[in-house]
C-alpha cells in the first residue's frame, strides 16, 4: 500500500504498431496540481484520456487510491474539456443540479422539495465559481469563460478525487484566461483538489501547477517515427519559478516545433 493517490506503473499505450506513450512511471499525492505540456501529438492528451477512462492503457497499471482505475468515466474523476462540456438544453443551475438528480433518482429527474434542494446546492457551487448572477441563463447566452466556469462547477458538485482539465482555457482571450487562472488556483486551495491539466501554454503550466510534466520522445528513429513513444521527460516542482529550467524546456519544445 502506498500513500499516493494516483500511480502509473510501467504504463504503455499503443494503437497497433503506433507507440504513443511508453515507460510512464509516476506517483501523485492528493492535493498536487500537475500541469502537462508537450508538442502536439506527444501523448499528453492520451495520458489524460487514460486517467479519465475514455482510453485504456495497453500495458502496465494505473492505480487510483491503490485500486486499478475503472475502465470507463465515472464520478471519481471530474473533467472540463475545451468545448462542449455543458448541456445546451439546461439552464445554468440545472446544468449543475443534474449531477444531484442522477445521484438520487432513477429517471434522473427530481421533483418538488428534493429538486429545490438540488438547485440550492447547485447555487452554492455557482457562487463558488462566480456564476450565481447567471443562474437562470442558458449556456448559449454565456461567454466562453463563463461556460468554462459552469463546466468547473458541474465537476465540483460531485467532489471528484481528481479534476482533469483538457486545455480548458485554450480558446479564451488572454484577459479572461488570467481570471480563470485565479479562479482555478482559489478552488484548488479551498477544496484541496488534485488537478491534472493539459495545456499548450508553457507559461500557464509554470504559473499554475505545483508540478510540471513535459511529454517528449527520448528516442527517435527518423525512418520509423512511430517506433518509439513519448514519456515524461521533465518532472519538476514549479512552486519556485526557475528561469533556467523554463528556458531549457522552452528550447527543447521549440526545437521540436522547428523540426516538425
Amino acid at each position: 500500500m502506498s500513500n499516493y493517490q494516483i500511480e502509473f506503473r510501467h504504463v504503455q499505450k499503443s494503437y497497433g504498431d503506433n507507440l504513443v506513450l511508453e515507460n510512464i512511471n509516476c506517483q501523485v499525492k492528493k492535493g498536487e496540481f500537475i500541469t502537462m505540456v508537450g508538442t502536439s501529438g506527444c501523448g499528453k492528451s492520451t495520458f489524460l484520456k487514460m486517467l479519465l477512462g475514455t482510453e485504456q492503457h495497453s500495458k502496465g497499471q494505473i492505480l487510483l487510491d491503490n485500486q486499478p482505475i475503472s475502465a470507463e468515466p465515472c464520478d471519481e474523476r471530474g473533467i472540463v474539456f475545451q468545448k462542449y462540456s455543458v448541456f445546451p438544453h439546461l439552464s445554468v443551475r440545472e446544468n449543475v443540479a443534474i449531477a444531484k438528480e442522477f445521484e438520487s433518482s432513477f429517471i434522473g429527474r427530481l421533483f418538488g422539495k428534493r429538486r429545490q434542494q438540488a438547485l440550492d446546492e447547485a447555487d452554492k457551487w455557482l457562487d463558488a465559481v462566480g456564476l450565481l448572477n447567471a443562474k437562470h441563463k442558458y449556456p448559449h447566452e454565456l461567454s466562453g469563460g463563463m461556460q468554462q466556469r459552469l463546466a468547473i462547477a458541474q465537476a465540483l458538485i460531485k467532489h471528484p478525487k481528481v479534476l482533469l482539465l483538457d486545455e480548458p482555457f485554450g480558446a479564451l482571450d488572454p484577459g479572461i484566461r488570467k481570471d480563470m487562472h485565479k479562479l482555478v488556483l482559489d478552488l484548488w486551495q479551498k477544496y484541496e483538489l488534485t488537478i491534472f491539466m493539459v495545456t499548450h501554454d508553457l507559461e500557464e503550466g509554470f504559473y499554475l501547477g505545483t508540478r510540471l510534466w513535459v511529454f517528449d520522445k527520448t528516442r527517435h528513429d527518423p525512418h520509423a517515427p512511430h517506433r518509439f513513444g513519448s514519456t515524461i521527460t521533465f518532472d519538476l516542482p514549479v512552486g519556485k519559478t526557475d528561469q533556467a529550467s523554463y528556458q531549457e524546456i522552452e528550447d527543447s519544445l521549440s526545437l521540436h516545433a522547428l523540426s516538425a
Binding site: T54, P73, D75, I79, I98, F102, G108
Partner: peptide
Amino acid sequence: EQLVKAQTLGANSFQIIIR
C-alpha cells in the same frame, strides 16, 4: 464530450438517454 461529462456526473446509460 457531453456523454463523457454526464458519466463523470454519475449518470447511467438510461439517465443519459432520457436527460
